[in-house]
């Protein structure tokens, strides 16, 4: 881990308090995000990928009962910061794009006002006029023609795809070092999704920071990301460069997930592959390998927990078989 990492997550564990006890949402997660990289976090519901994204932003829910480990941004531990220092970081160095832009956009203010406000933190010395013209330029860059009309519009007057472009513009106006995108295309139609994915690729080309792209879609991750971390039940079970990982998936969970992807080219009538069983109980986490219960390759050793081990340069998997 001596790469030029912008974000370094070290043995991060997060618990949430519930009526049944502490839910161990993340356990001992390690991840490093290099500059100018798009890193994909992929996993199913309950994998902890969204929790990880929120932790990076310092926006964990109120019932968070335990946070241990480090989240370092250029060597500075975010978890040690006071709330107001974190707030200062959000909107300057870290920005987020949400799945549903409507929850992040305020319905009673125009797009222009919100784009201006988003920059205040970053450029406290600039006036409204300058900030508006910066906003207009950014709208053009994210593919919105006639920015003047759009700046005067309210969020509900825009289509879903347009709103997501506005969200991206808002995030970029903060000139962040880290851009977190949590399922940004899940609510969009597939032809619009393709446009947004294109836009993110374009941004990447001229963006000096890194992008963390959270998604349940292996297809999207494979098309967009340089590196990928596969999460399962609060753990990173495999991580590595996208090409290598998809070409040689080493963890049985990754292999199973890839097998579940429906390939339209296989013969109809063939049974679709599924992963039997369900997520383990995250309150009373079973000992040993977290995937053992559902793993087709399980053997005696799986009652002990495997650590991440290198299978190829930069490509790690947490399985006794590698």
């Amino acid at each position: 881990m001596t790469r030029d990492a912008l974000v370094e997550i070290r043995s991060l564990s997060i618990d949430f308090a519930t009526g049944r006890g502490a839910v161990h949402a993340l356990r001992d997660v390690n991840l490093s995000v290099g500059r100018r990289r798009i890193v994909g976090l992929v996993g199913e519901s309950g994998s902890g990928k969204s929790t990880l994204a929120l932790a990076l932003l310092g926006l964990l829910p109120e019932n968070t009962s335990k946070v241990t480990g480090n989240i370092e941004l250029e060597g500075k531990n975010l978890l040690a910061l006071k709330p107001e220092q974190l707030e200062h970081l959000r909107g300057r160095r870290i920005a987020m794009i949400f799945q549903d832009p409507m929850t992040a956009l305020n319905p009673v203010f125009t797009i222009g006002t919100q784009l201006v406000d988003a920059q205040r933190n970053r450029h406290p010395d600039l006036g409204r006029k300058e900030l508006l013209s910066r906003a207009a330029a950014m709208l053009i860059r994210v593919g919105i023609s006639d920015p003047e009309t759009r700046l005067a519009a309210y969020p509900h007057q825009l289509s879903g795809g347009m709103r997501q472009r506005v969200m991206i513009a808002m995030a970029l106006l903060c000139e962040p070092d880290v851009l977190i995108a949590d399922e940004p295309t899940t609510a969009l139609d597939v032809t619009i999704e393709a446009q947004i994915v294109d836009l993110i690729k374009d941004i990447q080309a001229e963006f000096s920071g890194s992008i963390i792209f959270v998604s349940h879609s292996l297809g999207l991750i494979s098309e967009l990301c340089d590196e990928v971390a596969v999460m399962y039940a609060g753990k990173v079970v495999e991580s590595g460069p996208t090409r290598g990982l998809f070409a040689h998936p080493s963890h049985p969970y990754t292999q199973a997930l890839l097998a579940c992807e429906i390939d339209p080219d296989t013969e109809p009538g063939e049974r679709l592959v599924t992963i039997k069983g369900g997520l383990p109980d995250l309150v009373d986490v079973p000992s040993g390998c977290i995937f053992a219960d559902r793993c087709p390759a399980r053997f005696e050793k799986c009652s002990q927990e495997p650590a991440l081990r290198e299978v190829a340069p930069g490509h790690d998997a947490a399985c006794w078989l590698v």
Partner: peptide, 25 residues
């Protein structure tokens, strides 16, 4: 054709050339 092309499939080598439709529905 555009719909099929926009559908994300596992393609880490970026072999497929996507047809991205412009504009909104």
């Amino acid at each position: 054709r555009a719909l099929l092309s926009a559908n994300p499939v596992i393609d880490p080598e970026h072999k497929r050339k996507k047809i991205v439709l412009s504009g909104e529905i």
